[in-house]
Design a protein around this nucleic acid. Structure first.
Lengths: 182, 182
DNA sequence: TTGCTCCTCACGTCACGTGAGGTGGC
DNA sequence: TTGCTCCTCACGTCACGTGAGGTGGC
């Protein structure tokens, strides 16, 4: 399996300058890129093919060599992918600055784009929190059944059990997981 | 385009009993399922093929008919998919109760599974919050450039600008989006 | 010289989207 | 009878995973 190790702490910049890149010219191999971004060799190559990463050069043997800035980019892309943004949008965003003639204009556009993405992320976080809360409520309901000694009701008639009927607002997850109708 | 309308509010159970399903026998068509779960016809069919949804019957013409409980299931599956869980895991979870002989045992297993999923979700929420915070910090940095009137530095030498060098802790997103090296 | 690393195809996977062309049901 | 709804293939898509078979570089 082609995999990378070690998570990358966003902190400790000082000695990471020493550790990042084992080559004396400061360039990074595909493997360095993968390890230092917690991604994979395949992902680095795929992102190059997708026009997102650009090696500064290749060795005679065809090995890619990347500058440090490409590692920073890869880390950002990884974060944005984890946030759920598609590669097309990410690529477009990375090229934004070059599309405008003045710093003021570029800044306005990039800031607006960032605002939209921040809002999207807030929406996604809210969805996750809502679903998590539903699972938490379901867990509370079903924990009561840990003491169940009933051999009559159990598999198919749990809906008639007092443990279930007691609570008026049964969360949907509990109803579905416990095969209560309705 | 085969799409469904209207988001489903998790609340108002009372009148949804009337609105859900336009048929007098209380059964739901594929289209009803899609609309009432904010998914699509394709998704409903795909979930049946995947062994997750089960129509109670088909009409002579081959139209699927689902009971209300399958709509509840579809809604839960939609929530869990939005939360990032793979279908295999969801299917397995939906079948959990049937795999145990006693209610106590089933409860313990389901509760433990829910706990793991809740923890996973908390991790994902934490990641999203971290990335969102990074984008927010980048936005603050780059907003300063909205007043940029410099025609010398702009596209390529922003790294030398006092607006950038002033702040020691430039977030990675700002460095990458503004093409500052390092 | 020996490994470990990196290379290029190329097919597989997951969860659907997107038509094409045809029938059903109130 | 006219639409709108639903049907079944079947190929496409996105972001990689996963080998197979071969070479590079300290």
């Amino acid at each position: 399996v082609e995999r990378s190790g070690l998570p990358h702490p966003d902190s400790d910049r000082a000695d990471s300058v020493q550790r990042e890149g084992r080559r004396r010219d400061g360039l990074l191999t595909t493997g360095d890129m993968a390890r230092l971004s917690s991604s994979t060799l395949r992902t680095v190559r795929f992102y190059e093919e997708a026009g997102i990463l650009h090696p500064v050069q290749r060795t005679e043997g065809g090995h890619r060599l990347f500058p440090q800035a490409e590692l920073d980019k890869l880390r950002l892309v990884g974060d944005l992918r984890a946030a759920g943004f598609p590669l097309d949008e990410i690529r477009d965003m990375l090229a934004m600055k070059t599309r405008f003639a003045s710093g003021a204009e570029a800044s306005r556009e990039v800031v607006e784009r960032l605002s939209m993405q921040i809002d999207e992320m807030s929406d996604r976080i809210a969805v996750l929190q809502r679903v998590r809360h539903q699972l938490e409520r379901a867990r509370v309901c079903l924990r009561d059944c840990t003491d169940c000694r009933d051999e009559e009701l159990f598999p198919n008639s749990c809906a008639e059990c007092t443990a279930m009927t007691g609570d008026a607002e049964l969360p949907n997850a509990a109803r579905v997981l416990w095969n209560l109708g309705r």
